[in-house]
Simulated assay, not measured.
Amino acid sequence: MTQQLNDIFLLIEAHRLDFTNTEQVIADYLLSKQKIATIEQLAQQIAVSPASITRFAKKIGLGNFKELIFLYNLSLGADKDDGIQVSSSVTASYHALATKSDSFYREAAVNRFVDAVYAHRVIQFWGLGFNAFVGEDFQFKFTRLGKFVVIFNDQHSISLAAAAAVTDDLIIIASLSGTDVSLTRAAKTAKQNGAHILLITTNEDSPIINQTEETLFAAVLERQEQLGNISPQIPMLIQLDMLYTQYIKRHKQTVKKWLQAESILKEKR
């Protein structure tokens, strides 16, 4: 097998974004953990051709259906193991991610993010899919510090926000892949309207970077680990935690003022 991984379920999730519609059907069936005897039986059960199943096996790095069914049955058996192995696997993955995140840290870039956030009371946060959860975390953290954060989490609202952007607006974009065409187009429009644009991504070749004033690069695990036992937004959240920590460090007095105001409001309740 070409992939150094003995859990087919993680392997399938690691390739999820590359699947065709037919391959998505195959993936969903395998993830449902049904018993499988032959390629013909599987093909009949989910109404696809045996050739499609063979292509699926090769898509996830296996040689043929025999390797697929071997690894599938092996993974089904592993599900019966105790929770210690699961805990160790997840912990190891988080440790690897934390180590890589530390190596990606660029203080100058983080400080430019901090300066931009500090200079703007109103901040737009753009993110699609899982990236929208990153926006919610940003909103929770910085609303407490006196910022008004508006989250745009679908292509239509982002396009409208870009068209309505004016000089000195601050827009933070979170995009794990950094390849979404609609986000790239919206960023270009907002920049032409005079907005300041910041980006958080894992893709150093993202076309969105050309429209931004600064970029934070989040760490990403190897392909076979990337979307398995770690939620995909975690690398982005680590970058936000670094940003938030640096913001508090550099603006202690402002932060103290807002936290005191928050305490007063709680007492009045």
Score class of each variant (00 low, 15 high):
147 K>C: 02
106 R>D: 13
178 G>K: 11
108 A>H: 03
141 K>M: 04
171 I>K: 00
164 A>N: 12
118 Y>E: 02
146 G>K: 08
154 D>S: 13
131 N>H: 08
91 T>R: 00
168 D>P: 01
135 G>V: 09
135 G>R: 00
90 V>R: 01
132 A>L: 05
130 F>V: 15
138 F>W: 08
176 L>N: 09
116 A>W: 03
162 A>R: 15
165 A>H: 14
131 N>C: 13
167 T>Q: 09
175 S>T: 05
155 Q>Y: 10
107 E>D: 11
99 T>A: 02
94 Y>P: 07
170 L>H: 01
149 V>E: 03
113 F>Y: 12
101 S>I: 10
168 D>K: 00
163 A>H: 12
98 A>N: 10
98 A>T: 11
92 A>Q: 14
157 S>M: 09
102 D>P: 05
124 Q>H: 11
108 A>F: 03
99 T>S: 11
110 V>R: 10
173 I>E: 01
154 D>E: 11
154 D>R: 11
133 F>M: 15
97 L>H: 04
90 V>C: 03
111 N>C: 08
103 S>Y: 04
148 F>E: 14
109 A>E: 02
100 K>Y: 05
151 I>W: 06
127 G>H: 07
123 I>L: 06
97 L>S: 06
94 Y>H: 07
109 A>H: 04
159 S>A: 14
108 A>L: 15
134 V>K: 04
166 V>Y: 06
128 L>A: 02
163 A>K: 15
164 A>L: 14
109 A>L: 01
119 A>N: 05
96 A>M: 03
111 N>D: 12
120 H>S: 08
157 S>N: 10
144 R>E: 08
